[in-house]
Write a protein that binds this DNA or RNA. Structure first.
Lengths: 239, 239
DNA sequence: CAGTATCCGATGCGATACTG
DNA sequence: CAGTATCGCATCGGATACTG
């Protein structure tokens, strides 16, 4: 966005010149959530085109919100928020609160996105609350639209406070199995319903040792605010 | 902005669909500052075209942020924030704080706008702090670019907690005269300098009874947050 | 004044292709 | 993978004109 389009010296206008642009708050949200690499950002913003993501990163960089540095190990750059960028956290959080409170559009079927949901779940685990021993959770989804990324089974590997999402089983047997309608799991994730209600309604089923079933909901934080990195791969990590 | 462009159910995205658009935060700011009529909004957003303002108002209305009702007295509509809109206040305030803190672009000469400054000053008077008796302040500006609205003299009429800005003298004699370089008064208004420093530097001069000179800075609140209506006319009100 | 309607140029953006 | 470059369409938005 070019400089001073609003012709106003008001500080609100100054901030709006940086932030009030398509996609920009979401890029900041991704960075606040801990994404660092280009591919991670893309993962969290599946509908954003590569060129626009690049452009936004550059524009944020020129506005002092983001810095990037070339990686010595591996290729590409690592993007990070500057102090000014980190200071946007309360704004993004208020965005989230406001959206949660006031935007009363139900999630449409077309918006359901299994990959995005799992990506979000993976990065919102609470390290302190996770089980001590390595635990494999298998998520089986029904009602997944085939269009965007129609994968139906995911594994979340929890290990000493770390979480890792993958598309192939890290172990022959999962410790906990979650069978859920994508719509129900999404609604639960957004706080629109409770786990108990969905279980009673038969839209979510948990199978496994009683203590894991009971602990499951405590592993995840409030969507969008835990700010940690997840690993996300096709294949599980080699144990 | 059309629905669900981001394809994300995340609440931040929901809010961004409403807010992250050119001009929109500034329209909300204007409404939070107490503007109700179309013309008032235009006054506070001089560079925004009529068509875009209309479109934004409609879009905000369809998103449940604004309501409008046709005026029985007078013509046109009155626009107001809904509870959802009023709940944007903390976000806009954070925008302002962030912009003030982090956007380090000095006000360029081309951005100076005497009308906008006076509009802002007029609506940011603190009712409780104003003098008891009717007081006329004359503002004479130098260094006003002629392009946007090159008026050089303004009068602010303070009367029992009310303020009114006009372009013609409400009384033959002003109680307080302010002579200022537009750039200096703007910088003072934005908190980039102090009144004392500008007076010493000869860029701002106050002339009038000692108690009014002393009281002057106390009449105005922090730019952008007092949220009251001003009257703004060419001719002064008939006493 | 408070809009509504229309037009046309600028730009934003998605798609695609190319590179180390 | 992490970009860069190009292209062409669609939308946005500013200007202007028209209306009660």
């Amino acid at each position: 966005m070019s400089q001073s389009i609003y012709g106003q010296y008001c500080p609100v206008a100054r901030a709006a010149e940086v932030l009030a642009e398509r996609w920009t708050p979401l890029v900041v949200r991704e960075l606040l959530c801990g994404s660092r690499r280009f591919s991670e950002l893309q993962r969290g913003l599946p509908l954003m085109s590569k060129s626009v993501l690049m452009q936004r990163l550059r524009s944020l960089e020129s506005n002092g919100v983001v810095t990037s540095c070339v990686q010595t190990s591996g290729r590409g750059r690592s993007y990070e928020l500057t102090p000014a960028g980190a200071d946007l956290a309360p704004i993004i959080e208020l965005f989230g609160r406001w959206g949660h409170r006031w935007v009363r559009k139900p999630v449409t079927r077309g918006e359901l996105d299994a990959g995005l949901l799992l990506w979000d779940m993976g990065r919102n685990t609470k390290a302190a609350a996770l089980p001590q021993r390595r635990t494999v959770v298998r998520i089986d989804l029904t009602g997944v639209p085939r269009e965007p990324r129609g994968r139906r089974s995911y594994w979340i590997l929890l290990d000493r406070g770390d979480s890792h999402v993958c598309f192939e089983p890290p172990a022959p047997e999962a410790d906990l199995e979650v069978e859920a309608e994508l719509a129900a799991l999404t609604d639960y994730w957004l706080g629109h319903t409770t786990l108990a209600r969905e279980i009673v309604a038969g839209r979510i089923r948990l199978r496994g040792p009683r203590e894991l079933v009971r602990a499951f909901p405590s592993w995840f934080g409030v969507a969008g605010h835990t700010a940690r990195r997840t690993r996300w791969t096709k294949k599980p990590p080699t144990a």
